[in-house]
């Protein structure tokens, strides 16, 4: 996990221009593992474009004198003591999973990548 701070979203053209192509919508859908038809891609590209355009109005404001907001709540250092609390019953947890084996969650084999 490198600390590289490059933003692929910028490369994909997700920032700046409000016009959003269905190609970009397809990229976003793929990242979210959502399968969309060509018609849906077109429709969502328009809708997402409208959202971005709305948000881009903020960019028109001069915010030179405004402190960046890290969080909407005026809170810092919300911490808890390092004290254990009971965990859940494993059987109850695994009962919620589609499949389990040997006390573990059982998931389909991972095809694409090893992270």
């Amino acid at each position: 996990m490198s600390a590289g701070l490059d933003q692929p979203a910028e490369r994909a053209g997700l920032t700046g221009s409000a016009a959003l192509t269905s190609e970009v919508a397809a990229y976003v859908a793929r990242l979210a593992r959502i399968e969309l038809s060509a018609g849906e891609l077109d429709r969502f590209a328009k809708q997402l474009g409208a959202v971005l355009e709305h948000a881009s109005q903020v960019n028109a404001l001069d915010t030179g004198d405004v402190e960046p907001t890290a969080h909407p709540l005026p809170l810092r250092n919300v911490l808890r003591k390092d004290e254990p609390r009971p965990s859940l019953e494993r059987d109850a947890v695994l009962a919620e999973a589609p499949a389990s084996e040997d006390g573990c969650f059982k998931v389909p084999r991972i095809l694409a990548e090893e992270r």
Binding site: P8, A9, L31, A70, H71, N77, V78, A112, E114, R115
Partner: peptide, 22 residues
């Protein structure tokens, strides 16, 4: 290691459930 091009697009965004630490 085999990886997909977009595997590195982690879409970082601020964690809304945690406040800043100082």
């Amino acid at each position: 290691m085999r990886s997909k091009e977009e595997a590195f697009d982690y879409r970082y965004f601020p964690e809304p459930d945690l406040v800043p630490l100082a």
